[in-house]
Amino acid sequence: FSITQFVRNLGLEHLMDIFEREQITLRVLVEMGHKELKEIGINAYGHREKLIKGVERLI
């Protein structure tokens, strides 16, 4: 299971460039909250919320 699959499953594949540029893996994403996601350029609250909720389902 990769970050690419995870992001695609959430319908947020347009954010993949950010994850690749910042070298974010699923392991790193698990540790990130709204503040960190915003810092790397994910400005939409809804997108950040989707990512965080998606990660919570993985754990």
Rank of each mutant, 00 (worst) to 15 (best):
E20V: 14
K53A: 10
H14G: 08
E39K: 11
L37N: 02
L15I: 08
G33Q: 05
R48V: 06
E56L: 14
V30H: 08
R21Q: 08
G33H: 06
Y45G: 05
E56Q: 15
V7T: 07
E56M: 13
H14P: 07
Y45A: 10
K35M: 07
R21S: 07
F6E: 00
I24D: 02
G11R: 07
R8V: 10
Q5A: 12
M32C: 03
G54W: 06
R57P: 03
E31L: 14
G41Q: 03
A44Q: 15
N9H: 12
I40C: 04
E22F: 09
V7K: 00
E20Q: 12
F19T: 00
D17A: 14
L37P: 00
R21Y: 06
K38S: 09
R27H: 12
Y45L: 10
E39F: 08
I40V: 09
K50P: 01
K50W: 07
G33W: 03
M32H: 01
I52N: 00
K53M: 10
L51P: 00
S2L: 08
E13F: 11
M16R: 07
V28H: 15
Y45R: 11
L26P: 03
G54D: 04
T25L: 03
V28D: 14
E22L: 06
R8N: 07
E20M: 12
T25A: 05
K50M: 13
N9E: 14
L37E: 01
L12R: 01
F6G: 01
G41A: 03
E56I: 11
T4M: 12
E13G: 12
G11C: 07
R27W: 10
G54P: 01
M32N: 02
N43G: 11
G54F: 05
E49L: 13
V30Y: 11
L58N: 03
Y45F: 14
K50D: 06
T25Q: 06
D17P: 15
I42Q: 02
I52C: 05
G41M: 04
H47D: 15
V30L: 12
N9K: 12
R8P: 00
Y45P: 09
M16S: 10
H47I: 15
N43Y: 13
I40S: 03
E56V: 10
I24C: 03
Q5L: 10
G54N: 07
L58W: 13
R8M: 11
I42A: 02
E13S: 12
S2Q: 10
E56W: 08
H34R: 04
L15F: 05
G41F: 04
M16P: 01
E20S: 10
I40Q: 02
G33D: 06
L15E: 00
I24Y: 03
L26G: 02
F6K: 00
H47A: 15
T4G: 13
M32W: 07
K50Y: 04
I59K: 13
L10Q: 04
R57E: 12
R8Q: 11
G54I: 05
M32Q: 02
E39H: 10
N43W: 12
I52G: 00
I24Q: 02
L12D: 00
H14W: 08
H34L: 05
G46R: 15
I52W: 03
H14E: 13
